[in-house]
């Protein structure tokens, strides 16, 4: 387990190194003054710029400048947004929780829907249910997310009027920002309208979550199907059959758990894909998350925000990836230590 952890941290370290180098070089590659791109101080006077140049050791070599930049990052200083003139760190801190909320709920939904359906398809391998599920999965995977989002709004918000089309919660509810995760903040708040707010926030969550979850869910379906098929081919399943266990006993006791582990391994990879989809979805549903903010920053040529957002979003994806790796390792002894198995 120790080596496993060490490996992950090693990976984390080098990824972060590359990421910060990329982000740092972006400030040179973007048009305009590098120091201004890095700090976001577009209205600074020459005196202020001189102070900043000194602070960021602008005159020194690239290596020194880079380490200086990284030390600023470690202190939570990512410069100021060129558009809003607020610290980028504050802007991100205010928006990241909304994205975490959306993506984690969507990930859970995708897993809880996709994996059982995938197993189901594998059990009925090459029969009608399998074919239907594969077909639907193919369609779900191919539908462009922006089109799906707009279609969902058209049907459920405009035509039927069932669900809200924009935002995280109705503006009527004043929920104090504690953790930033809306649903948790609502439960923590002492508003007399707590339950109304909770229901309202849940209603706001439904459409974006479905849109974000659809494509990953179809991938989980296919992964789960393949994993289950592999497991059903193994010797221990054959042995179980030979022992005279019923088909459903085999599925429940042996096949499902082992297939599940194989799927978990890929969840981390799919998460990056899910966050990309979430960014587009946030724009469509005016979700106040970091993806929408980052896309707006690109429109506004807010270079400082782009660099900061890039680092935080990639780090977030990477951390989730590692957490899922650990979960996988906890579930699967084979991954932890080679001595457990073949």
């Amino acid at each position: 387990m120790f080596i496993f952890t060490l490996r992950r941290f090693n990976l984390f370290f080098f990824t972060m190194l590359l990421l910060t180098i990329l982000s740092f070089s972006l400030s040179f590659l973007f048009p305009g003054e590098q120091l201004v791109n890095l700090t976001g101080q577009i209205n600074a006077t020459p005196e202020q710029l001189a102070v900043l140049a000194n602070e960021y050791q602008h005159q020194a070599g690239f290596i020194t400048q880079y380490f200086n930049y990284v030390s600023h990052l470690f202190h939570g200083d990512m410069g100021y947004s060129m558009a809003s003139h607020l610290p980028v760190a504050t802007e991100i801190f205010n928006r990241l929780p909304a994205t975490i909320e959306l993506t984690s709920v969507a990930l859970l939904v995708a897993m809880f829907v996709g994996i059982p359906i995938g197993f189901f398809a594998a059990i009925y391998h090459r029969k009608t249910p399998d074919n239907i599920i594969l077909g639907v999965a193919m369609i779900g995977y191919s539908v462009p997310v922006f089109w799906l989002g707009i279609l969902a709004i058209l049907v459920f918000s405009i035509q039927l009027g069932w669900l809200p089309s924009a935002g995280q919660i109705s503006l009527l509810f004043e929920i104090e920002h504690v953790t930033g995760l809306q649903l948790i903040d609502i439960l923590l708040s002492d508003s007399p309208y707590k339950w109304q707010a909770f229901i309202d926030a849940t209603r706001h969550l439904i459409l974006p979550v479905i849109v974000v979850a659809l494509a990953p869910a179809t991938i989980f379906m296919r992964l789960a199907r393949t994993a289950m098929l592999e497991v059903l081919e193994t010797h221990y399943i054959k042995a179980a059959k030979a022992k005279g266990l019923t088909f459903w006993q085999i599925i429940y006791r042996h096949a499902m758990r082992n297939a599940f582990i194989k799927v978990i391994r890929d969840v981390g990879l799919q998460f990056a894909n899910l966050v990309t989809i979430a960014m587009v979805t946030e724009v469509i549903f005016s979700w106040p998350g970091i993806g929408r903010w980052l896309i707006e920053s690109i429109y506004q040529r807010d270079y400082t925000a782009i660099q900061g957002g890039l680092i935080v979003l990639s780090t977030f994806i990477f951390i989730v990836h590692i957490i899922i790796d650990f979960v996988y390792a906890a579930l699967n002894p084979l991954a932890r230590e080679p001595r457990h198995g073949a």
Binding site: S157, I158, G161, S165
Partner: peptide
């Protein structure tokens, strides 16, 4: 279009 959608969705 955003305003229209919000009106139709009751927001």
């Amino acid at each position: 279009t955003g305003r229209l959608t919000k009106l139709l969705a009751g927001e």
